[in-house]
């Protein structure tokens, strides 16, 4: 019994599905900490352009990133459907602003194909793969790459300098 459950887990990936513009995207549910309605966002002057600002998440200050801006899409009005997906990547907690969160799905591993040179409008590096949902296609994101900004590289360098 336990074995069956385990193998089932291994063959499926659970994804949080959200929408940006007309496309649907997925992120690994294991990286998602929580999904919040829009909160007050405080602008951070001098921050990299795609950082929308910071929010107060139960007393913790969390940076928020506008995925539209990160992907170079035109900006959109916030609507009551707008959400902040709070994700954990490594030891980084960050909020991602999306147009709307649709559902959580389990996708068999074989329904996910490696990122093709497909016209998705976003940088291929950001893709972890494409999910086949029958009539729909799901763009599965590689969050590490999306957050791999220059600032992060600098920080690691800084740590190394100190070690030396």
């Amino acid at each position: 019994m336990a074995k069956e459950v385990q193998s089932q887990f291994q063959e499926e990936q659970q994804l949080v599905v959200f929408r940006l513009g007309s496309e649907e995207y997925g992120v690994d549910i294991l990286q998602v900490q929580e999904i919040k309605r829009m909160l007050d966002i405080t602008r951070v002057p001098k921050a990299p352009g795609f950082i929308e600002g910071v929010i107060n998440l139960r007393g913790q200050i969390i940076p928020v990133l506008d995925l539209r801006r990160r992907f170079g899409f035109p900006a959109a009005e916030r609507t009551p459907d707008s959400r902040i997906i709070v994700v954990n990547i490594g030891d980084l907690v960050i909020g991602l602003i999306v147009d709307t969160v649709l559902e959580v799905i389990s996708l068999p591993k074989e329904a996910i194909s490696p990122a093709p040179a497909l016209v998705t409008g976003i940088n291929n590096d950001f893709l972890a793969g494409i999910g086949d949902l029958g009539e729909r296609l799901l763009i599965i994101l590689n969050l590490e790459k999306i957050l791999a900004v220059d600032e992060l590289g600098d920080l690691q360098e800084f740590g190394q300098q100190l070690e030396e």
Binding site: P45, P63, V93, I94, L147, V149, E151, L152
Partner: peptide, 17 residues
């Protein structure tokens, strides 16, 4: 004073939030 987090600490203009 709360830290701004790793992503933003490089901006020296801010001592925190």
């Amino acid at each position: 004073i709360k830290p701004l987090g790793r992503l933003l600490t490089r901006i020296s203009l801010w001592a925190g939030a």
